[in-house]
């Protein structure tokens, strides 16, 4: 079973990378981009076949390693 973990800078936490991307988009002439936030996606291929258990396991992995919950939030999606 595949799981995708989306890790994003928490709301309110400065995201200089997102800001820089926003400036670069502006430089390319893309108007109307109000805000950019940059995070990462981590794909997991899990042996678990039960969706609830797979999701719980991926969330545990996110809490303990994949995200630093002081500065990042995460969301798990099963694929």
């Amino acid at each position: 079973m595949k799981a995708r973990v989306y890790v994003m800078p928490k709301a309110g936490v400065l995201d200089p990378q997102g800001k820089a991307i926003g400036h670069a988009l502006e430089g390319l002439g893309f108007g109307g981009v109000n805000d950019v936030r940059a995070g990462k996606v981590i794909e997991l291929d899990l042996a678990e076949t039960d969706p609830a258990r797979a999701k719980a396991a991926a969330e545990d992995m996110a809490r303990r390693l994949l995200a630093n919950t002081v500065i990042e939030s995460f969301r798990v999606e099963l694929a």
Binding site: P9, V13, L14, P16, Q17, K19, A20, N68, V70, I71
Partner: peptide, 16 residues
């Protein structure tokens, strides 16, 4: 910090 021995987090420098 990552080991949980001190609190908080260290983000990318504000200037990048």
């Amino acid at each position: 910090i990552e080991a949980g021995l001190l609190p908080g987090g260290l983000l990318r420098n504000a200037t990048l």
